[in-house]
Design a protein around this nucleic acid. Structure first.
Length: 570
RNA sequence: GGGCCUGUAGCUCAGUUGGUUAGAGCAGAGCGCUCAUAACGCUUUGGUCGUAGGUUCAAGUCCUACCGGGCCUACCA
């Protein structure tokens, strides 16, 4: 049996994510995980919240709460929302866990032992009023280049010039507005990933089947300028994994924490350990997914992420894994995504522009969002959400093509034969022809799912739904019922089995509808159609079923207009 | 500035290593059906494949330049 380890980029803790974030990693990862499980594979699907860093501290301060308490609450919120979207994580962890603390410190110790850590003294801006060091972008001031007054310390958003915070005229803290700033010397640890450039480059070169988006970003970082640069992996913050060298204190690093991007990917491993802990299992249960010396040899590890996360997953994290000189599992395939835009612009948290996960679930069931998002996932370029497109897709694909098919077949059967699969007649040439067509399409669909080509997969699935309507039209059981009721019975028996088949195939995308349909068909445990002929005879004469409620209500023009107005933003 | 991605029918997108009259869904038009969520089926109108050159027997596909859209550029994560 194949074993697949799947991780989705872990969402940052400081707020509720919008639909662009959702489709950028978690949702496609879920579709893939559901597919692999449906095919009988063993799957470990991991996600977590990314809780450390300056933005988390500031968000907590703004909320007037201790950061640990703030994170715990936001974890609950994000967990509830991921449940609402039916994200089937085996574990939804927290990067602030004890497991992650220990593993992060362990990796740092290993890297230091292998001479891959450098201690660097550098100068940073300290804000006395805020009582903290500030990252470059949290310093604001007037741009020396163009005079823009709200330029950030890393770059001026107005003229796009790269800046150093000390370049700014009249610098002030973006947090408090205080101008009481000073440059202070501070010591930090750097991951010497430049030493691993050749090794990383060879490794990337060996990945011929990765998305261009993934490899091109990695190659850019490897070859830009002087090549891959070392990266600071510690920060002067209170909230984070305390810097330690394994179990030992790290002289000179007192009071400092690891940088979020060092500990966040390690949480993939730690969250799997958290899963084992929660299940009451011992370490071997998670190590067989992560340690190639403890059973992970036959695991295929697939990561999902937005393009902004690619450098960390192709370079920094692999450098951490390789540099440990321990047999940890490296990623086998990195699926990266472009961005989803909202109606002519970007989603904006600050402007309240676009639909956020909590709002989406208030408006419509998760299947609606899942279907639209997965059938428009930005695989090849940035894509765009519009209400008109959303309404058209949902009404046509889900309500008309699939929902109405279920409705017309089950209601016709109930009216003419009662609520059980009708007996009589036999499958003939028409049924064989449809079965052939579906067999061909099913093979294509499976290939696209294996390749994680989700847009193509949804399009193929839709074509399989359409085949049912075509079949029904040519078989016209409503007419045959009057002249040859036996034939009509066979047609409806076949159509009821198509419904069951459609429910199974649709599971990765619209799991609630799948569950509803299978429940109505009286076959909750229906398995993947490895034998299509058998699958299309699975519901035998006499098998009881019920007519489900309308599966997908249409989105009216009025409703669409209201939603469009509500989410237009400030 | 540099790098990468992208520009194909009104809209959203497919177009395999260059190979016959460029495809799908939606929208539009016509016809059919009446079991069904006024749903379904069939037929059909739309494209000098961003522009201009070039390579080739042959270019949507390869090369160059230009125009437009987007992303990244290492202290946000």
């Amino acid at each position: 049996m194949t074993r697949t380890l799947i991780t989705s980029a872990i969402p940052y803790i400081n707020g509720i994510k919008h639909l662009g974030n959702l489709i950028g990693s978690q949702l496609p990862a879920d579709a893939f995980a559901r597919y692999k499980r449906a095919r009988g594979g063993e799957v470990m699907f991991i996600c977590a919240t990314d809780e450390h860093g300056t933005p988390a501290e500031l968000a907590a301060a703004k909320a007037g709460k201790p950061v640990a308490e703030f994170c715990a609450e936001m974890w609950e919120v994000q967990k509830r929302l991921s449940d609402g979207f039916r994200l089937s994580f085996d574990h939804f962890g927290r990067s602030s866990s004890e497991r992650n603390r220990a593993l992060t410190q362990h990796f740092a110790g290993q890297l230091a032992d292998n001479d891959l850590i450098a201690e660097v003294d550098e100068k940073q801006i300290y804000s006395k009023a805020d009582g903290r060091f500030l990252p470059d972008r949290y310093i604001e001031g007037t741009c020396p280049n163009c005079g823009y007054e709200a330029a950030r310390g890393d770059q001026c958003e107005n003229c796009t010039k790269q800046l150093d915070p000390t370049d700014l005229i009249n610098p002030r803290s973006a947090v408090s507005g205080s101008t009481d700033l000073e440059v202070r010397e501070t010591r930090h640890l750097y991951l010497r990933q430049s030493k691993m450039r050749a090794k990383l480059n060879d490794w990337i070169d060996s990945k011929k089947d990765w998305p261009i988006l993934t490899t091109s970003i990695a190659k850019k970082w490897l070859n830009d300028g002087d090549g891959l640069r070392d990266r600071g992996i510690t920060r002067d913050l209170d909230w984070g994994v305390p810097v330690k060298r394994g179990d030992e204190d790290w002289p000179g690093m007192e009071g400092k924490v690891f940088y979020v991007w060092f500990d966040a990917p390690i949480e993939y491993i730690a969250a799997t350990a958290e899963w084992a802990d929660a299940q009451g299992l011992d370490d071997s249960a998670w190590q067989r997914w992560w340690r190639t010396d403890k059973g992970a040899d036959d695991v295929r590890y697939v990561q999902f992420m937005g393009k902004d996360n690619v450098p960390f997953h192709t370079l920094s994290f692999p450098a951490t894994i390789m540099g440990s000189n321990e047999p940890w599992k490296l990623v086998d395939y990195i699926k990266s995504f472009n961005y989803l835009n909202y109606d002519g612009g970007q989603f904006s948290t600050s402007q309240g522009r676009g639909v956020f996960m909590d709002q989406a679930l208030e408006i419509l069931p998760s299947d609606y969002w899942r279907w639209w998002l997965l059938s428009h996932v930005p695989e090849n370029s940035d894509s765009e959400f519009t209400w008109e497109n959303f309404q058209a897709s949902i009404n046509k694909d889900l309500a008309d093509v699939l929902g109405n098919f279920v409705s017309r077949v089950t209601k016709f059967c109930r009216a003419k034969f009662g609520e059980q699969v009708p007996d009589g007649g036999a499958y003939g040439d028409a049924e064989a022809a449809v079965t052939d067509e579906i067999a061909t399409r099913l093979k294509a669909f499976e290939g696209q799912m294996e390749a994680i080509e989700l847009r193509k997969a949804t399009s193929e699935l839709r074509a399989i739904w359409v085949a049912g309507n075509e079949y029904l039209q040519s078989a016209e059981p409503w007419a045959k019922f009057k002249t040859d009721p036996e034939q009509a019975a066979a047609t409806i028996r076949f159509a009821l089995n198509l419904i069951r088949l459609y429910a199974v195939l649709s599971g990765p995308f619209i799991p609630d509808a799948t569950a509803t349909i299978l429940s109505a068909m009286g076959d909750e445990g229906a398995a993947w159609p490895n034998d299509l002929d058998a699958a299309l005879s699975a519901l035998a004469p006499g098998h009881g079923f019920s007519v489900p409620e309308v599966l997908f209500a249409k989105i009216t023009d009025d409703a669409r207009a209201q939603m469009e107005a509500r989410f237009a933003g400030a």
